Amino acid sequence: MSLLHGKLEAYVGIRVAADLFHDIFSGRPHHISDMAPEKIKACAVHEGDWGKPGTVINWDYCHDGVAKVAKEVIEDIDDVNLSTTFKVIEGDLMKEYKNFKLVVQATPQSGGEWSLVHWTLEYEKLNEEIPEPFSLLQFVVHTSKDIDDHHTKKK
């Protein structure tokens, strides 16, 4: 891999069932704005249908205190391994990256009592001066925790 290509990964434990977490990202990402409203402002279908590979979605989000947008295509939904792959095709990330892909996978742990979420960011920077997207990795991890808190807070 050249200095322009990179891959970052993070794991986060959550109390939400893996299949529910997967369903949120694969078929209902527009609900995330209700679960993490400080981060995700809106998510809407641009083309296609929720829960289908090939669907293009628009995200409005706040990252590092700045309002940003992204247009992504859902490249893959793996209901067996509970993973969803998004490829960014337009938006603020494309100002710094030639290619950017996010993969989120949830794996049940301890008989389903909790889940391990694995985030993978794969990217190609436009030039060597572009920083690694560590803060974006933190952003998706913290969004996972917000989803967890939303589903597990005591009513």
Rank of each mutant, 00 (worst) to 15 (best):
L20M: 12
V56L: 13
A17W: 00
R15E: 07
F21M: 13
D19N: 13
T55K: 01
A17V: 07
R15K: 15
G51Y: 03
D34E: 14
E47V: 04
I40F: 10
R15N: 15
V16L: 14
V56D: 00
L20G: 02
D19M: 06
S33D: 04
P37R: 06
I32K: 13
V16P: 05
P53T: 09
D49K: 14
D19R: 13
R28K: 15
D34A: 14
K52D: 03
A36K: 13
E47H: 08
H22N: 11
L20P: 03
D19I: 11
R28L: 05
F25M: 10
T55A: 11
G48F: 08
K52L: 07
S26R: 03
G27W: 04
R28A: 15
I57W: 04
R15V: 05
G51E: 09
G54E: 08
E38Y: 12
E47T: 08
A42T: 04
A44T: 15
K39V: 00
G27E: 05
M35S: 03
E47P: 02
F21E: 02
I24E: 12
G27T: 08
C43D: 09
E47D: 13
I24T: 08
H31V: 11
G51T: 00
A42G: 03
V45G: 01
H30V: 06
A36G: 14
M35G: 02
I40M: 06
D49L: 10
S33Y: 02
K41D: 04
D19H: 12
H46S: 15
S26P: 05
W59S: 04
V56P: 00
K41E: 07
A36L: 11
D60F: 10
F21T: 02
P53W: 09
G27I: 03
I24Q: 05
F21A: 13
P37C: 06
H31C: 12
H31Q: 14
W50K: 01
M35T: 09
I32R: 04
W59T: 02
G48V: 09
D23S: 13
C43G: 10
V45K: 00
K52M: 14
G54R: 11
A18E: 09
P29C: 07
A44D: 15
I40T: 07
E38K: 15
F21G: 01
K39A: 08
K41M: 08
K39D: 00
I32M: 08
C43L: 06
I57S: 05
D60V: 12
G48L: 07
R28N: 15
A18S: 09
I40E: 00
K52V: 07
K52W: 10
A44F: 06
F25C: 04
F21D: 05
V45N: 00
K52G: 04
H30K: 10
I40G: 06
K41N: 10
P29L: 06
F25D: 01
G48P: 04
I32F: 03
H46F: 06
D19Q: 12
I40C: 09
I24G: 02
H31I: 09
M35D: 02
G48R: 07
H31Y: 11
D60G: 13
I57Q: 09
N58Q: 07
D19L: 07
